[in-house]
């Protein structure tokens, strides 16, 4: 089939004359995404009951090889997708994080089932991690206990849609095209209880505090009133995080510096979430979110695109001036 250059370069971006050759980037994204989403190799890696449904999904009746996922690799070094299929225990999260760090980028994580998403029925247990997203970034959550094979397939399709919407020009979207090596996820330590290295300082502070005022180390936190949190939530959720960083970035003429700053911000953010100085999970229960996930994020994606455009325009102005 002949490649229609006119078609390919047709984008919504107003392209300044001297940036015409950048246009290829958007098209490249498409090709990249098409390739990536249709050759997702999951890791052959099962944790608990959900893994059995994952095997059922892989077998002939539901057969996820129709989506280019038939090659389940037993080694992390050859896989793109980690399906966290089951309860994550504290003892197991250490190897899981190590496995994740060994996966080559681009890599995705799908949390399958209630357990991997948020702890599941065993959440209250002393050896259970309340969701793999406490340690790793998760792309798609598939609720259910266990999700039926069709529910898992739906989640995999959602992941493909997500990849489709990604742009390789946007480092917030796909961090692995950012600058430099990406940092490995910190591996937790099995001490008296599991210790997240990102929280070391916090634990130390708490321990000192407990020692000095004779308090208890594990005192329960008093929440800000649930209602306040809920009222905050829409604002937080609606605020497109990537776009927020955009103005500053557009002013800096060094793209690299901006990307590094964003990366640092991202790291800080994730640390903040881990340290739970801000509640990682806002009970934004009132947020309605019907609809398929990829439909929902349309607005955010749009905003991101606008930000990118603004950045581009600013840069173009500068070069002209």
């Amino acid at each position: 089939m002949e490649l229609n250059l006119q078609e390919l370069s047709k984008t919504q971006y107003p392209i300044p004359a001297d940036l015409q050759n950048n246009v290829a980037i958007t098209s490249l994204s498409k090709i990249y995404n098409w390739g990536r989403r249709n050759s997702m190799w999951p890791m052959l890696f099962g944790l608990a009951c959900c893994a059995i449904e994952m095997i059922a999904t892989a077998s002939s009746r539901f057969d996820f090889s129709r989506f280019g996922m038939e090659v389940m690799r037993a080694t992390p070094r050859q896989s793109d997708l980690m399906i966290v299929s089951g309860t994550v225990t504290k003892k197991m999260v250490v190897p899981i994080v190590r496995l994740y760090n060994q996966m080559p980028e681009p890599k995705y994580v799908l949390a399958m089932g209630a357990c991997a998403s948020g702890g599941g029925p065993f959440k209250e247990g002393y050896n259970v991690v309340s969701g793999i997203d406490k340690y790793l970034p998760v792309d798609v959550y598939v609720p259910g206990c266990p999700p039926t094979p069709q529910a898992l397939l739906f989640g995999l399709i959602a992941l493909q849609k997500k990849i489709d919407g990604q742009s390789i020009a946007d480092y917030d979207d796909v961090p692995w095209y950012g600058v430099g090596l990406s940092d490995p996820a910190p591996v937790p330590i099995l001490g008296p209880d599991i210790i997240d290295p990102r929280q070391m300082d916090m634990i130390r502070r708490q321990a000192e505090k407990a020692a000095s005022d004779g308090g208890v180390l594990n005192a329960a936190r008093s929440l800000p009133s649930a209602a306040v949190a809920v009222l905050d939530a829409p604002a937080k959720a609606a605020k497109p995080a990537p776009a927020a960083a955009a103005p500053a970035a557009s002013e800096a003429d060094d793209k690299r510096a901006a990307a590094l700053a964003r990366k640092a911000a991202r790291a800080a953010k994730s640390e903040g979430a881990a340290a739970s100085t801000t509640p990682a999970a806002v009970p934004a229960a009132s947020l309605p979110s019907g609809g398929k996930p990829w439909e929902e994020s349309e607005a955010i994606r749009e905003q991101r695109k606008q930000a990118a455009l603004a950045r581009k325009a600013a840069r173009a102005n500068k070069t002209e001036g």
């Binding site: 949390a111 997203d133 069709q150 739906f154 999970a281 996930p293």
Partner: peptide, 14 residues
């Protein structure tokens, strides 16, 4: 059963 989402903090408490 088609409930997959990208973000659990905002959408998983029904």
């Amino acid at each position: 059963y088609e409930l997959a989402s990208y973000d659990r903090t905002t959408s998983h408490i029904f």
